[in-house]
């Protein structure tokens, strides 16, 4: 695809990813269908197949998926300016809203009913994280099988008491990339 630096293209990029950012309730993964609607159906910047390739690729790399999609498609369509453009409209409006809300919240946190709100939300966050834990557990078992999944869970649980999680995750990443020959020996 030929990159297009026209003002109109940049405007369209900004409009498309602004809508994605502002309508994407529930975080990055839930905004993927919205991205598809804009870049495949509406503006036809990438084909359906290219979109699923980009998504698969985004999923093999670490980090948030929504900004990777926005930045990469922005780059494909409108070069580095398009990349920056798509990233800014995806993140700036929601970050501003976030900072505004959190500052207001902190300012009034000593008012009794505001303090009650802060407490009421904690069990809900616990449930949300519990459900995520369950999802990660289920998908670990589905991908690795019960034995491997529970072995890694047990090792992680013990190891995490002593060391920074980064060290454990990097070791696991290296373990996943271990040479084939070693795997054959196991």
């Amino acid at each position: 695809m030929v990159k297009n630096f026209s003002v109109k293209t940049q405007w369209n990029l900004a409009a498309a990813f602004f809508r994605v950012g502002i309508l994407g309730f529930g975080g990055g993964p839930s905004s993927i269908p919205l991205v598809h609607q804009e870049v495949v159906d509406k503006y036809e910047w990438v084909t359906k197949d290219e979109f699923s390739d980009i998504l698969a690729l985004g999923n093999t790399l670490p980090g948030p998926i929504a900004t990777k999609m926005a930045g990469y498609i922005g780059y494909r369509v409108g070069g580095w300016i398009g990349c920056l453009n798509a990233l800014l409209v995806t993140s700036v409006p929601t970050v501003m809203a976030m900072i505004l809300l959190f500052s207001t919240f902190q300012q009034y946190q000593h008012v009794p009913w505001v303090a009650g709100m802060a407490k009421g939300v904690v069990p809900i966050i616990a449930v949300m994280l519990g459900v995520l834990t369950w999802d990660f557990l289920q998908s670990s078992i589905a991908k690795l099988g019960k034995t491997m999944a529970f072995t890694l869970i047990a090792i992680s649980a013990v190891v995490l008491f002593f060391i920074h999680p980064a060290i454990l995750l990097v070791s696991l990443i290296l373990f996943a990339l271990r040479p084939r020959r070693e795997r054959a020996k196991e």
Partner: peptide, 27 residues
Amino acid sequence: VQALSATVRPAIAVLMAGLTFRFVESS
């Protein structure tokens, strides 16, 4: 490449469980 996120997932599950527990405790 496919195995990457699968191998990291159990550790994420453990971290997530720890975090869940801290929120239950704090509540």
